[in-house]
Design a protein around this nucleic acid. Structure first.
Lengths: 232, 232
DNA sequence: TTAGTTCTTTGCGCTGGCGCAACCAAGGGG
DNA sequence: CCCCTTGGTTGCGCCAGCGCAAAGAACTAA
């Protein structure tokens, strides 16, 4: 028997602070600036000069890349406890993505001189950052392979599972994805279109695998989705 | 007037050793083991325990990921002066990709304890590794966006340009891609099929943009390719 | 409550690109 | 030199998924 909670990750996983004692963390945070990002607004824009890197305390960020006409791809969602824009620390570059808040979000931001100081005080942090970058690289490579090798239906199944694992909340009827996620978002995340996503979710709803509303999805049978994603 | 050489990168770019004095480099190399990888053979396999990371001295590696039935995706080509499998250093993980030699290749490999020692002796190296990982992440994100937003023709154009920039050699008739690159390889690199790639290269050959033979491509009009890739 | 906006659903027709099949061309080993 | 393997080309049919259009549903502001 499979339990719904088997499909969820532990709520907050600040791998970034692994090896840093609890007492030190407030000191690190106080070196940065806390900032509130209202739902729907933008924290930083792709191609802007990268001045700060951020830690998400509460809420959720959406990282997107825009293609020159119209289409956008969702690169990743950032949950509480994760960092983003590490690029701002090490490269005198521009942001490679746009970060916007899916819901009201609070972040802590450090500018380059500050974070460099912090990193030299706590060398473990550099290693943790590198680990994070390697994780994201691997994740991206996996999604790239899926995009090459699988058809839309499978990719959507995987996307739902991936998002569910990181941002799912168990409720009576199944696992609720606990932020606003539209058909368009899922399409941008999987390289499909809004129409196709809508049609596929409809079929799955009829099969009883999930139930969905406006910008809301509850996965009621994750196991069926997994089976579907794995099968040929 | 555009010169062909405008489209090429400088031949060897060991960003990994930026900030490390020339005298030190032999010491770092001698801490590792030199290894010869015959064309067509495999240096390491996806999912094997990651024991060593590698620096390519000569030749060329192909990094691929295999999907469970059949299809494979080319994640990246590694040219002389670049490192790969940094994951072996920091994570007690498995390799996320397979590395095979496209041509006869020599690498230097370090196992975890050795490279950790080296890194603590030369802290700049850690930063350089992180920089490299961030570059590759960005590259992957770009290709992901392209795969979502563009059609095959454009992706193939971009792929050719990308490969040409890193591995092109100027000859009389244009820029020669200086390793064996089959239609299948290009297809695996762009998420297309062998047939489609073949058809597209044929059309471009008729237009005079390139000339190609068995596992060989010479781009004679890079500018036309750029224009094609950029246009809608 | 109403009007306006934003998100979703679904029918329908179209097409980019896949993939088979059959054939051609270039190496390479003996 | 010939044979055999490996890679490339091209015609043909097919279908997954796109994208328009039009209607419906849910939220929002006034």
């Amino acid at each position: 028997m499979n339990h719904l909670s088997d499909y969820l990750e532990s709520p907050i996983r600040s791998e970034i602070f692994t090896g840093i004692s609890e007492e030190m963390r407030p000191k690190i945070f106080s070196a940065g600036q806390r900032r509130f990002v209202k739902a729907g607004t933008t924290l930083f824009h792709e191609a802007d000069a990268a001045r700060q890197c951020y830690f998400v305390q509460k809420g959720r960020l959406k990282l997107t890349k825009l293609h020159f006409e119209g289409k956008e791809a969702i690169v990743r969602y950032i949950s509480p406890g994760e960092m983003t824009a590490a690029v701002a620390v090490f490269k005198k570059n521009t942001y490679p993505v746009t970060a916007s808040a899916v819901e009201d979000t609070t972040v802590v931001g450090w500018d380059r001189p500050t974070i460099l100081k912090v990193l030299s005080d706590y060398p473990t942090l550099t290693i943790n950052l590198l680990n994070g970058a390697l994780d994201r690289l691997e994740d991206m490579q996996n999604r790239y392979l899926e995009l090459c090798a699988e058809r839309v239906e499978q990719r959507i199944a995987r996307a739902l599972l991936r998002i569910m694992r990181r941002s799912g909340r168990k409720i009576d009827s199944g696992v609720l994805i606990d932020f606003r996620l539209s058909r368009q978002d899922l399409a941008d995340y999987t390289g499909a279109t809004l129409y196709t996503v809508s049609r596929i979710l409809s079929t799955w709803e009829k099969k009883g695998w999930l139930s969905s509303g406006r910008e809301k999805i509850v996965v009621s049978d994750p196991h069926a989705l997994v089976a579907f994603a794995e099968e040929g």
